[in-house]
Design a protein around this nucleic acid. Sequence first.
DNA 1: AATTACGTACAGTTCAAACTGTACGTAATT
DNA 2: AATTACGTACAGTTTGAACTGTACGTAATT
Lengths: 170, 170
Amino acid sequence: MGGNDHHNLEDIQMKVIHEFSKTLEMFGLSMADSRLFVTLYLHPSPMTLDEMSSALGKSKTAMSTGIRNLSDQGLVERVWKKGVRKDLYTPTTNLYKTFMTSYIQKWQTAVNEQENELAAVEEQVQANMQRCVKQKEMDETAFLQERMREMVHFHTCLSKALQSLHPDPF
Amino acid sequence: MGGNDHHNLEDIQMKVIHEFSKTLEMFGLSMADSRLFVTLYLHPSPMTLDEMSSALGKSKTAMSTGIRNLSDQGLVERVWKKGVRKDLYTPTTNLYKTFMTSYIQKWQTAVNEQENELAAVEEQVQANMQRCVKQKEMDETAFLQERMREMVHFHTCLSKALQSLHPDPF
DNA sequence: AATTACGTACAGTTCAAACTGTACGTAATT
DNA sequence: AATTACGTACAGTTTGAACTGTACGTAATT
């Protein structure tokens, strides 16, 4: 038998949490947030902060901020259950679509932001070009202009690639 | 005039480095490595460790390890120039393709790895299923199995999405 | 109205990543 | 052969993110 013989359910769950959270980290989640999410995901019913806390062995405060992060990204939802005072949280359904949507969104936002910033700077480079006196200064500015054109193109390509990426499962 | 009036070339370059490195950070580079890369990218000729060091105001050791990181990901290349003893580095040409290739590769590797790990655990869950005596144990194991199927599907979808992503600029 | 249960803001602590300076091995120069 | 110049390994330091425990505001319970 190999080195990874996990016998009881608890061990196996730990292992699954460890592995799957590695995948979710690729989506930009911190290790802590990933593990929290997978914990919810492997639990058959919505969990309270206290349950998460004891499941992961971390403080309740840590769970609170973790849930807030996940919630901000639309990865978990609050759930109501009659007679239960504590907040209950559950992962959003449609795991793949949720993560893809959230991820693509994050990229698109950032790319747009950067595109705008670069466009603004490009104008200043133009302006700077006018002011040049020495040849060396001219050359350097021209070089920078060329690079900026490349960077804008880079963002354009990125943007198109993102659009080609549909968030629905195959 | 807006709040961001950068007059000389140096200021503008700093601004560009700051902005473009934000985009590169999205590819999983650290802030330090991104800034180093963009510094090289905006320099008209290959740079030595000492040049990078003074350009970024960081130690030479930091440059050395940074260059190693970038080099490992295929983002910079060492360049030879007759008569120059110091190592010279330059960003790889075809910025977009380089980053996309490196990024897609990173994802694919990770996804495969995780797929394999999960498959291995799945067997143990099967085995565990046999051993169950109580009804509750059975239910929990069955639930875990269902989730594992979903996780495998998640990775399959991811893998296909990655394959649909071509690394060449539009 | 008083008490209890809950989530979170906040200040302090822990821990890991980034960075620095020194020391060393290797290769070019003398 | 001796010296100098270079890149990097390593140990110690700094810095920022994650985490903890306490304190507090709010809402349910008594």
